[in-house]
Design a protein around this nucleic acid. Structure first.
Lengths: 199, 199, 199, 199
DNA sequence: CGATAAGCGAGACGGTACGTCGAGTCTTGTA
DNA sequence: TACAAGACTCGACGTACCGTCTCGCTTATCG
């Protein structure tokens, strides 16, 4: 996400100069998460993040192209791992559990605030939109694998397309998350699962 | 949407002074639509709309609370009526047609640009978020009625919740519309319909 | 200096929109003078001027191209008029008095601070350099007229060039003002006058 | 000018580690001169000098307190020696020649650019202002000696103060050099000499 | 009719955040 | 210990929009 993670090629000039300050990176991500979570959707400015992290604004811009990129990395680093893929049950159980966990995790701060801010910023910032696209693709991939495993076990109704199912699930999630007109609780997760696996 | 010019309450002083300039209203809506459609996601500022409409900024603020409210009204006035509810077929036919029409209508300019801009602005502007909430509620209502009519005709599988179905449909639509990772064509509409009515 | 001073041509569209706020203009000039005088040569930032004047930064930039332009206008408006041209004496008396007054006026705050800041900024800002050039040209013109009047009365030694004399006077002034290695008092003014009129 | 590398005091540890790289010093001075001369008044940043010299920024700061100090040393080392004091003529001849040479030398690149940059920076940098003060004091000293030798030969008019004459000469020079409103040629040098020695 | 009350185009106003630039300092690995 | 490289904190820069507030003018309605 941030600096060159891959590289690998030892290009003769391995590195010169001062290294990236990992403490600063952590402080920035912490501050971003804290502000986005606390403000719950309020305006989170780069100046505020930098000040809260005790860091120069330039240090933020040096490593991230935009506010949203910071938040996305913060989300992935900090709040991303709490949706673990359930294993060892029927597809119905696994799917229902996965959906319920996703719903719950996304609605707790600071994740909820971060998601809202990400959505807001992605409208302005094409680069973030791209990052968000690949982030969601990853998430869809996880869910899709869960479904594929179910299909291999013969638990998926005939004629069902995993691709479409995945988008129905995440689509409903985002739709309700943004508009807030309906609940995102475990009951909903259960009913959605039933509807999807019906037939 | 805009301020009620009617003033239904029979106050002692019903109206004095110059009336609202309808031409200006049209020019503003036109300009908003044009900019949002053309830029296709670019920044649409109030200054730009006012200038493009040959209008003072105050004239915009006098009648609409925010940029987004202008766009929403433009959408409803101009690009809203092309999703007509199909009647006189099986539920499967009606639903598939409705979804396909919705998909298609939303992907043509200027509607697509306007929708994108609305989404973007709704993140910043709580007032617009509210408007958008009620706008989408209206749309959901239309779809829901279609489903209810189908249920009355006994065409809905048992145990199906229209509320959830509606959100699966619009959820998938927005999810793909925003991220653009999958198609929103008539084939998708058909497969989605099949999946929903399965069982 | 600031807004359209000349114009004159009534161009059919005399004016539209809100007028320039004269109070803001005064507040900005006051603040600039105060800061430049108090700091005595310290960094005077646009932000500081705007804040001190209770004005948005944009209002400064709307009317002046740079910090220095503000200061120059402040100088001309406020601190410019205290060097009055003496009349009704011998050239020697007039000149000596003019020089002494110039020396004295320039060394009092806020004028001194403003002059120093102007000099400093003119190095960075070509536009200000131009303004400063024309400002100093005006000042030279005044002194030159004084000399010409003396010449007409036959009080100027033969073979003397007023142009050169003017630059000797102002040159010495700026040289000592900037470097501070010698006094700029009435004694110096007297001796300089004597040296120039000798022969 | 730069840090005394000598370390004359016989401490127990006269020197440890790597010695100063003379090539780097030369490269820095070269680069500074080149940039100041080429840009002719443009912004000369420390980063730019360091990069142009193929040197780390720290190496500049290790040996010079500021950008201006670099430039001043460059000026003294490279462009300073071309104003030789003429000897063996009448005071009038010597003075006229000295002034003309000064005028000419200062107007050629890179000296002119360096002088302008020095002047500009001295406004920001108090340390440089001090250096510049002592540099100009040296120059004044040279000119003053020339005048004193003339006085001893009885070539100076009675009642003339060398101190004032020196400042009239250098004052006029800087004044015209900065503002550029009048020529600094040999004719001017001649007329200035005549004016100063009149009487 | 005049008085009063809007609406209008224009644009200046106080603010807030932006993303960039340069300064001087600090931290690497290498020489 | 100096050096090239380059990351760091800091502070000012000039710009972009925001939503509000005058201006002078143009319509309308009312007494």
């Amino acid at each position: 996400m941030s600096a060159d993670t891959g590289a690998g090629a030892p290009e003769s000039r391995p590195h010169t100069g001062r290294r990236r300050n990992e403490a600063a990176r952590q402080a920035i991500l912490d501050a971003a998460l804290r502000l986005a979570g606390a403000a719950g959707g309020e305006a989170v400015t780069i100046d505020a993040i930098a000040k809260a992290a005790g860091v120069g604004k330039q240090t933020v811009y040096r490593w991230w192209p935009s506010k949203g990129a910071v938040l996305l990395e913060a989300l992935v680093d900090r709040a991303g791992q709490d949706v673990t893929v359930p294993e060892g049950g029927s597809l119905r159980e696994e799917l229902s559990s996965f959906i319920a966990t996703t719903f719950e995790a996304a609605q707790q701060e600071p994740a909820a605030g971060v998601l809202r801010t990400l959505l807001r910023e992605s409208g302005r910032d094409p680069h973030l939109a791209e990052l968000l696209r690949s982030y969601t693709a990853t998430r869809r991939g996880v869910l899709r694998e869960l479904l594929e495993r179910g299909r291999e076990r013969g638990e998926l109704p005939a004629g069902v397309e995993p691709e479409l199912m995945v988008d129905q699930i995440y689509g409903l999630f985002w739709y309700r998350f943004v508009l807030g007109h309906g609940p995102l609780d475990s009951g909903t997760a259960q009913r959605l699962t039933d509807a999807l696996l019906r037939g």
